[in-house]
Design a protein around this nucleic acid. Structure first.
Lengths: 149, 149
DNA sequence: ATAATTGAGGACTATTTTAGTACTATTTAA
DNA sequence: TTAAATAGTACTAAAATAGTCCTCAATTAT
């Protein structure tokens, strides 16, 4: 599958919690307790999200992390690239250099198109969409007959 | 970044070569020689592509591999899932079971939406598109001034 | 028929990546 | 000034991936 790292997965869980909870500031320890993710791992993720301007940190006593802006303005693409770097399927799409695979790599330009499409898809989904009650289409579509087996 | 495995990358290179070359049948050894990928690795990739009905194999002397259909009918999505399994960003989107992350995972339904979008993007691009001379937009957009530095 | 050529399948190993941990420094409120 | 909190860095362990090798099966040419 098209892998996302576990850290990215955790990040969405953490951000969802923060977006749902009214409190503005959350300490790393509190988040670790609520989500069940180990504290050092939470810290690591928070640091990356701060660097990507998704979160704002406050040090010292009563410090903690807060969303840098409203959930509607935080795209999934931003979160993913904060954790994994630029969103692209192939190395060469990032490096601007092309690859050294001498024979048979005129493919690059076209990969860019694909990457762009995927990027657009991820840009269009925000944190607010993620915490919205899910549509759960597959459950709606289960044929009634299957309930009687 | 949203990683594709190296094997998938190789697969696109191999398939591009095969789609461009007039000859119908290519032995694994020939492909290894042309692409510079080690023979055992080529074999491994070919095996997966045969199982996914992207290639057809012929054993024995004068045997080899041929595309199962015209490049226009081979989607990038097919190739990727042949090498990496189902296209999805999160585990839970595949397993149909949801995850055990007790607190805070109502996200699933929405991830499905994202995965679907990405899948559509990859379905819409074919091998034929990949070997088409690339548009190379970034080269076109270089300001002329930059040539004089 | 038989030998040569080519793919199929599976098991194994090594490498790389990722996850997770620990420790130390820095900042700020009480 | 002390306690509470994040920042940063380096290290370790585990898991995933890539790559190799070996044996078996099939086909064709001699």
């Amino acid at each position: 599958m098209l892998r996302l790292s576990k850290l990215t997965d955790y990040a969405t869980v953490i951000l969802s919690f923060m977006a749902r909870d009214k409190a503005q500031v959350h300490a790393a320890m509190e988040i670790a307790a609520v989500t069940g993710i180990a504290l050092p791992t939470v810290s690591k993720i928070m640091k990356l999200l701060v660097n990507a301007d998704v979160l704002i940190s406050t040090r010292g006593a009563k410090g903690g992390y807060a969303l840098a802006r409203i959930p509607e303005k935080i795209s999934v693409a931003t979160v993913i690239s904060a954790l994994e770097g630029p969103i692209a399927l192939t190395e060469c799409s990032i490096s601007q250099q092309g690859c050294e695979q001498a024979s048979g790599c005129d493919i690059r330009g076209n990969w860019n198109l694909i990457n762009q499409t995927i990027n657009n898809a991820l840009e269009s989904v925000t944190l607010a969409d993620l915490i919205r009650p899910a549509a759960m289409p597959e459950e709606v579509l289960i044929p009634v007959a299957s309930l009687y087996r």
